[in-house]
Measured scan of single mutants.
Amino acid sequence: MGTYKLILNGKTLKGETTTEAVDAATAEKVFKQYANDNGVDGEWTYDDATKTFTVTE
């Protein structure tokens, strides 16, 4: 398990959240659902060194 971070750079929603997941693929699924639930759809990037996903609208 590891802690993964999501940085939201949406047009109307900005912020950060974290999740505990077994791997990056699992964290990505959780974060994409979170972003979708909050109406954020954009370009995704992932930094393996910091376990950080970023979505920018």
Rank of each mutant, 00 (worst) to 15 (best):
M1N: 10
M1K: 11
M1E: 10
M1W: 14
M1H: 10
M1I: 11
M1Q: 09
M1G: 11
G2M: 15
G2W: 15
G2L: 14
G2Q: 14
G2T: 15
G2P: 10
G2E: 15
T3A: 08
T3W: 13
T3L: 14
T3G: 05
T3S: 07
T3Q: 10
T3E: 08
Y4G: 01
Y4F: 08
Y4S: 00
Y4D: 00
Y4N: 01
Y4T: 00
Y4R: 00
Y4H: 02
K5S: 06
K5H: 12
K5L: 07
K5D: 02
K5Y: 15
K5N: 05
K5E: 03
K5A: 05
K5M: 08
L6C: 08
L6F: 05
L6V: 04
L6H: 01
L6N: 01
L6D: 00
I7Q: 05
I7D: 03
I7E: 04
I7V: 13
I7A: 04
L8C: 06
L8A: 04
L8F: 11
L8I: 14
L8M: 13
N9Y: 15
N9M: 12
N9T: 08
N9A: 08
N9E: 08
N9P: 03
N9C: 12
N9K: 09
G10N: 04
G10T: 15
G10D: 03
G10Q: 04
G10H: 06
G10I: 08
G10E: 03
G10P: 03
G10A: 11
K11E: 06
K11C: 11
K11H: 10
K11A: 11
K11R: 13
T12N: 14
T12C: 13
T12K: 12
T12G: 09
L13P: 03
L13I: 15
L13K: 13
L13E: 07
L13C: 13
L13T: 13
L13F: 15
K14E: 05
K14G: 05
K14C: 09
K14S: 12
K14T: 11
K14N: 08
K14L: 07
K14Y: 10
G15D: 08
G15H: 11
G15K: 13
G15E: 08
G15F: 14
E16W: 15
E16V: 11
E16S: 11
E16K: 07
E16Y: 14
E16C: 13
T17S: 08
T17Q: 11
T17V: 15
T17P: 03
T17A: 12
T17R: 12
T17Y: 15
T17I: 15
T17H: 14
T18H: 09
T18I: 09
T18Y: 15
T18V: 11
T18S: 11
T18L: 09
T18F: 13
T18G: 04
T19Y: 12
T19W: 08
E20L: 14
E20M: 13
E20C: 09
E20H: 11
E20K: 10
E20V: 14
E20W: 14
E20T: 12
A21I: 02
A21K: 03
A21R: 03
A21Q: 07
A21C: 07
A21Y: 03
A21P: 01
A21V: 04
A21N: 03
V22L: 11
V22W: 13
V22C: 09
V22A: 13
V22S: 12
D23T: 05
D23C: 05
D23K: 03
D23F: 03
D23M: 04
D23S: 07
D23Q: 03
D23R: 03
A24E: 06
A24Y: 12
A24T: 07
A24L: 08
A24H: 09
A25F: 09
A25I: 12
A25K: 11
A25G: 09
A25Q: 12
A25V: 09
A25E: 11
A25H: 10
A25S: 07
T26A: 15
T26N: 08
T26F: 07
T26S: 14
T26R: 06
T26M: 13
T26V: 07
T26Q: 13
A27L: 00
A27S: 02
A27W: 00
A27I: 01
E28C: 14
E28P: 00
E28D: 04
E28M: 15
E28Y: 15
E28S: 07
K29G: 06
K29P: 03
K29F: 10
K29R: 14
V30Q: 10
V30Y: 15
V30R: 10
V30E: 07
V30F: 14
V30K: 08
F31D: 00
F31K: 00
F31C: 02
F31T: 00
F31A: 01
F31Y: 02
F31R: 00
K32F: 06
K32W: 09
K32D: 02
K32A: 05
K32E: 04
Q33A: 14
Q33E: 07
Q33T: 08
Q33C: 05
Q33I: 10
Q33Y: 05
Q33L: 09
Q33W: 06
Q33H: 06
Y34N: 02
Y34D: 01
Y34K: 03
Y34Q: 03
Y34M: 05
Y34V: 05
A35W: 03
A35R: 01
A35Q: 02
A35L: 09
A35T: 05
N36Y: 14
N36A: 15
N36L: 15
N36V: 13
N36Q: 15
D37L: 11
D37P: 01
D37S: 11
D37C: 09
D37M: 13
D37I: 11
N38G: 04
N38Y: 13
N38V: 15
N38L: 15
N38T: 07
N38P: 01
N38I: 14
G39P: 02
G39R: 07
G39I: 04
G39N: 10
G39T: 04
G39F: 07
V40I: 14
V40T: 04
V40C: 05
V40F: 11
D41Y: 13
D41M: 11
D41P: 04
D41R: 14
D41S: 13
G42R: 01
G42W: 05
G42F: 03
G42M: 03
G42D: 02
G42Y: 03
G42C: 02
E43P: 05
E43K: 12
E43Y: 12
E43S: 11
E43C: 11
E43R: 09
W44G: 00
W44Q: 01
W44I: 03
W44L: 03
W44C: 02
W44N: 00
W44H: 01
W44P: 01
W44K: 00
W44D: 00
W44M: 04
T45G: 06
T45K: 10
T45W: 09
T45I: 10
T45H: 11
Y46D: 00
Y46I: 02
Y46T: 01
Y46C: 01
Y46W: 04
D47G: 02
D47V: 05
D47N: 10
D47C: 08
D47R: 03
D48V: 12
D48W: 10
D48P: 14
D48K: 09
D48T: 12
D48M: 10
A49C: 07
A49F: 09
A49T: 13
A49S: 11
A49G: 07
A49D: 10
A49I: 10
A49L: 13
T50G: 04
T50H: 06
T50E: 06
T50Q: 06
K51A: 06
K51C: 06
K51N: 07
K51Q: 10
K51E: 03
K51R: 14
K51G: 06
K51L: 09
T52A: 04
T52M: 04
T52P: 00
T52D: 01
T52Y: 03
T52W: 02
F53L: 01
F53I: 01
F53G: 00
F53A: 00
T54R: 06
T54M: 10
T54P: 00
T54A: 05
T54H: 06
T54F: 07
V55Y: 02
V55W: 04
V55A: 03
V55C: 08
T56V: 07
T56Y: 08
T56H: 08
E57Y: 11
E57T: 07
E57N: 05
E57G: 05
E57H: 06
E57M: 08
E57K: 04
